[in-house]
Structures are given as C-alpha cells and as structure tokens.
C-alpha cells in the first residue's frame, strides 16, 4: 500500500542558503510523526512546501501517490490536507460555531452564496464537530473571548471540517500548560485513530513528543539528521549535540 504522504528530495533555498536540503520521509495513515529540530532548522519551510504555500526548488510531495507540488494551498486543502497554526486563532468576529460553519461552507463550495443566511448552513454538522472536541457547550459564544486552550480545540474542529487525510500541526501545544498539552494531544490522537488520519507535527515540548509521537524525524540546518522511534532519536549523539543538549532542563518524568 502506498504511504499517505511521501516526501522525496525536497529542497528549497533562500538567498543562496539551503533552508531545506534534500529531505525525504514517509507518513502512514493513523500515524503521528513529530518533526523536531532547533529554531531555524527548516521545519516551517518544510511545512509550507507540503501544504503549497511555498514552491520547492526541487523534489516531490506525494499525497496518496499523487504529486501535489505546484498546487495552491486552497487546492491542497481540498485534496484533504488540513492545517493548524503555531499561534492558534479563530475568525475573531464570529461565534465558535460560525467558525466551524465557515469551514464547512467552504468545503461545500458555497463561499460565494450571497442570499440565504450563513447561520442556516451546516449547523448540525458543525455542532457534531464541536462535540468531538468537547466544545459544543461553547457553540454560540464569541470566539474572541475563549481561553487559549479552547481556541486550540476550535481550531482542531475547523481543521477536521473537510474530513482531512493528513493534518499538519505547527507546534500544536505551544503556549499551553502541561496538563492542557496532554489533554489536547490525547484528543488529537483519539480523533486521528478514529478517522484514520495521518499527522505531521512540530513541537518543542519533549514530553509531548515522547508521549505521543509514533515516530520522529529530526531536522538541523535544513538536513534530515535522524529518524526513528523516540528511544533511537533520543540516544542519537548527533541529535543530542544540536538539539537536546545536556537534557537537564527537559522534564524528567515522561507521562502519557
């Protein structure tokens, strides 16, 4: 069976510097793959090339075997690649459920409908999605007054609206307390398993990575320097040198 996502020899330079240099990896359905590395290692560039925001200089990105390089982000999204951002936010002038409805409206290609009220579109479906992330009680609150952890959940519901095959999550737990981190990642893992979605995520919080990633890949200066299970990567001397350091400031206890 072809893997869900195949990245082959992906390369992109900025002003002569290779931000991403010949990176290749694969990701299967139902798998959580962590992409880690120091700041500026090329993680964001990598993300942006997979979802179509940046065009690679060379290389391929195959989704279910089909090369999607050169497609616009919108079209990549339609093919089933959802995305969440490092700094979560909502459409702040809308209620929680309207945020989800917006995504459903777009998925159904009704963005340019200008007659029937938007509130009437997909309200039940939106409520279902909110229930999945545990936010249905907040459906009619303005999204601008939500706590940050809740904004993350709404963002997840929005990302699930087009029934994605692949989710790209940029530092999904940034700015959250340890307990919220675990809750959110546990929720993500559950939804991913139920819907058979593949997840590629970047993360600096090592307890999250070790607890939830099925596999990890490590980027440094644009190159893929290690990949494999948590244990293998943790004990890799190269990764220690460029990323983990002494390990004395990393949470000692790993709990799932």
């Amino acid at each position: 069976m072809t893997p869900l996502l195949q990245v082959r020899d992906l390369t992109r330079s900025f002003g002569g510097v290779r931000a991403v240099d010949n990176v290749s990896f694969e990701l299967a359905r139902g798998e959580l793959l962590a992409l880690i590395g120091p700041n500026g290692a090329g993680k964001s560039t990598c993300f942006n090339m997979i979802n179509g925001q940046l065009r690679p200089d060379s290389g391929e990105v195959r989704l279910d075997g089909e090369n999607i390089v050169g497609r616009k982000p919108r079209d990549v999204w339609r093919l089933g690649v959802g995305r969440t951002f490092q700094i979560a936010a909502t459409f702040h002038s809308m209620t929680v459920i309207e945020n989800v409805q917006m995504a459903l409206i777009s998925h159904a290609k009704r963005t340019f409908h200008a007659w029937t009220a938007a509130a009437a579109h997909f309200r039940d479906e939106a409520r279902d999605l909110l229930a999945q992330v545990g936010m249905d009680a907040h459906a009619d609150r303005p999204s601008s007054i939500l706590a940050y952890g809740d904004v993350k959940r709404v963002e997840l519901a929005v990302a699930l609206a087009n029934k994605p095959k692949l989710l790209l999550m940029d530092e999904p737990t940034a700015g959250m307390a340890p307990r919220e981190r675990n809750d959110l990642m546990a929720l993500t893992k559950r939804l991913v398993t139920i819907n058979d979605i593949g997840v590629l995520f970047t993360e600096h919080s090592m307890d999250v990575v070790f607890a939830f990633a099925d596999r990890m890949i490590v980027l440094a200066r644009g190159k893929l320097i290690a990949q494999g299970s948590g244990e293998a990567v943790r004990d890799d001397p190269k990764v220690r040198e460029v990323y983990f350091g002494s390990g004395r400031t990393v949470a000692r206890r790993v709990s799932a």
């Binding site: 979802n51 999204w77 809308m94 963005t111 609206a161």
Partner: peptide
C-alpha cells in the same frame, strides 16, 4: 450570507481563511 462571512473571515485572518480553502 456565506459570502459576507467569507469576507470577514478573510479580514480576520487571511492566512486561516486560505487554510480552509477561502
């Protein structure tokens, strides 16, 4: 209508609107 919402979505965050196909 949906179009009015789409306009506000783009205004609130063009990046996020793009990420959901708008």
């Amino acid at each position: 209508a949906p179009f009015g919402y789409a306009m506000r979505a783009v205004r609130d965050s063009a990046l996020r609107a793009d990420a959901i196909g708008i």
